[in-house]
Design a protein around this nucleic acid. Structure first.
Lengths: 215, 215, 215, 215
DNA sequence: TCGTAAGCGAGACGGTACGTCTAGTCTTTCA
DNA sequence: TGAAAGACTAGACGTACCGTCTCGCTTACGA
């Protein structure tokens, strides 16, 4: 954040209020859902005046983006020893995150708002989406060290295209399975999905030949 | 509606009102977005009283589901002559549908509402999601006829699992790319994605060996 | 007035709500005073929604004008048998009205608002001020019948000028004594004032010669 | 500035701030009216912190009393040579004062507040009302010197009663005519009013016999 | 053919939440 | 150490919709 050299006259903003507001937003989101989440209720729970809230966030959606962004940062990718294990791991931990009520409600709601709000779209990408790509980058680097994937292409743009694609496929599939198809993302599904991702449709359509998909 | 044996006394409901309401819902959705779409505004645009609207739909989300469901029925899968062509075709036509403002706004918004509303979730699946699976089933059957994919497994549940998986991967990837990553789904992306889907991560990561991904 | 030929579509306004609001306004005014009288509190006391209130009155001051106007209509002028008795009677009953907390508070407050609001000024004159002139007209007519005052001038404008003057002098003196000088308007003051009004400053300054000022 | 030995750690802007605040109060009062006059706005216009303002005046009404009190001190009563001329003079100059927007707005507003605030009532009397009685006393003394009025009664309380009465009648009539009846106080009205005051209702009702009321 | 039951428009109703504004108070930093 | 700047709590403001409820029609069926 390269130096905020403004001497900031007047009383500084309360960091405690910031924290209380974000906490209150998350708990309220779980209890009442997105559409009944009101700025007034968040303020009440945080023990803060509405003006304090509006001084920091102009709209409910921006507040919620910031409140849930931190949850996505909890995602990690422990080394499973193989590309397959790493993919299954990230699928399962992402699915676990999406099972939490505040996460799934908030994510879809702010995405819905963002379809007609360019600024919100940028904020979501910066606070949530782009930060998850590190998982794909990490897993890919590990697999390359293990020799499971070829090294990066000479063209950095080509590499970025592939990383983006893999990210969209994994995240998209998990989100669609969880929230649209409304089916559980369990070990069996993760295994089948990983097979499809690694080996393609031909192999996934006849998995019997190779390994069993179920646990 | 299979036998509505109630003699339906009194003045019958106006079919014209139904049509006007759904049309007004779609155009209003484009113009003002989900969160500013109000029942009163829909009624005003449809030239209808609010009571008439509430007599048919209990909530904004149900109305919107019905209003946009018909758009998804427009999706078709012309025979492209090969599995690869069919996949690329469905990806591009689904992406085109999601570029329409009313579709993307409505889809994400009702999905967001549905995270805390089981009845709405069922309605969305019935009116929108499940009807798209036919595209996967059609494409798969064609590919099997062409010999590009092995015939159905003996276990129908296994077949359903695979179809659901493919559906989640294709739809999820396109939705995520379009609405979350906010990047265009063009021919190049469709080609690379299809390669990944058909041949797996190993091939997609080094596509140079086989065919060029761009058009 | 005279015929409301509009067919009055939609649900008609509730007369009960009107009454409840005006009653609530008066009692709230007594209890909390003008500056702490809020539209929300009036609505709460009247058991009515704020919107119902704003549908009828655009501002607190207009509501209060209507609420207290009826109190001024209670003023009457019983025939005291002489001009002197009639003047003293109207002075004392007007003073009694101004002793009521809701009256004095409301009157001064709306007059203050009206100094920067032409519409409010008109409303006050129509609802409150002009209706009191009947007291002057009645008293004057009686005195003329008794021979205590000469008959009307041939010029109606001249008559109106005199009536307005007498009205301003009586009402102004009572209001100023009550609310500005903050002294009681009792029988003694009423008698002295009436002497001044009837006979002029010379007589009032030396009342000992004539009659005693006290009751 | 070499010889400015003031260490002045304390309050270097105190007197300037006072003046700036009172000036800002008056100009703001003219521009926005009483009910939209806010402490914050006065502070902003005066270039002063809100704290500085609250350190000196506890409430808006007290501030306004002090801000407009000085305007009332401008009233003077030049000797017109006769009681009639003096009365007409004071009526006209008081009316001119009440034509100024800040005066009339402020006067009625603080009087309205004072109906539920004893301390404010005292402050108004001390700062505004009582200081005007000197005009009545002066005029009366002059008239007595000229022989137009009898000398003071032996009883000082009786004298005070008469002075108060005259004050209430003159000030009340002018205020009522100006702010309640909302009619101009011009030379004609002043003449008619003075006739009534000096000679009583009988004469005023038939002024044709004596002198013409118009200018 | 006529009654009657439901649908229709309009719009008022009691509510909830909005986002803004103001009142006063409470820290900061500057001079 | 007082004044400016401005963040703080508290709560009213007037507006927008909500979903429900009269109203006075209109429309179609069935007796």
């Amino acid at each position: 954040m390269a130096g905020c050299p403004a001497p900031r006259r007047g009383r500084p903003r309360s960091a405690a209020a910031d924290r209380a507001i974000l906490d209150a937003t998350r708990t309220a989101l779980v209890e009442v859902g997105w559409s009944k989440l009101t700025m007034g209720e968040v303020a009440r729970r945080a023990g803060v005046a509405k003006t304090t809230l509006y001084r920091r966030w102009a709209a409910k959606s921006e507040l919620v983006v910031d409140a849930v962004a931190v949850l996505f940062d909890e995602l990690e990718l422990p080394d499973g020893g193989s590309l397959r294990a790493d993919v299954e791991g990230v699928v399962l931990s992402f699915a676990a995150l999406l099972r939490r009520p505040e996460t799934k409600t908030a994510l879809m709601a702010v995405l819905a708002e963002s379809t007609t709000d360019e600024a919100l779209r940028r904020r979501i990408r910066a606070a949530i989406v782009d930060r998850q790509k590190r998982l794909v980058l990490d897993g890919r680097a590990r697999a390359q060290r293990r020799g499971e994937l070829p090294p990066d292409s000479a063209d950095p743009a080509e590499t970025e295209r592939v990383v983006d694609l893999i990210f969209d496929v994994i995240a998209g599939a998990v989100v669609h399975r969880s929230l649209v198809s409304d089916c559980p993302v369990d070990g069996a599904w993760a295994a089948t999905f990983t097979t499809l991702l690694l080996d393609g449709l031909g192999s996934a359509s006849a998995p019997r030949a190779g390994e069993p998909p179920g646990p």
